[in-house]
Amino acid sequence: MTSRQSILSKLPAKATPPAWSSQRLVPAFVQQDQAQLVALFCEKVMLSQATIETVASVNEVPARVAALFPNAEIVVSDVLNNLPWSQVALQRVGLDLAKDGIIAVTDCFAGVAETGTLVLLSGRDRDSRLNFVSQTHIVIVEASSIVGPYEDVWQMLRDATISIPRAVNFVTGPSRTADIEQTIELGAHGPGEVHVIIVDAFEHQP
């Protein structure tokens, strides 16, 4: 008998799906209209020790990044290649894992107002490593993609008929650790700074 069989033989196994209704139990404070959700999201992003700002069009993002980090070297997610990067004083470079202090710019699939959380997907033009090796992570969020509770993110994926990607990362604020004397320090292994830029809808592939 294999270990699989011997373990399963000791467990209450039923071939048919057990009767179960996964009732959603979401906090009342996230049940609001879209404008309120965006405001709540901004509030929670700030609580998470990230910064937040809004620009009118996604084409303004490069200029905003350049204003934040003039003449800096930046690594931009391929999915954002179409933005007017060449018109601003920034140098786009490729990802060098050996280098610390990377400034990375990525998009995200959704924002969750409940805790100011950014939801990032892995994919063809989305290198998940950027979310974690950078020292500074700049994330673009579409206003219409902001939802109340986490559960809505999975519904959005189903609605968009996107099959679940390898990695779905829920990111809230900078990386932190409280291992030493239970006192919080930012920037443990992941980004020590997270900047969120909210934009109106823009064209980008799923």
Partner: peptide, 10 residues
């Protein structure tokens, strides 16, 4: 309220 990272690997 949440940790910095909650990741789903599939």
């Amino acid at each position: 309220d949440t940790t910095s990272y909650v990741s789903f690997f599939t």
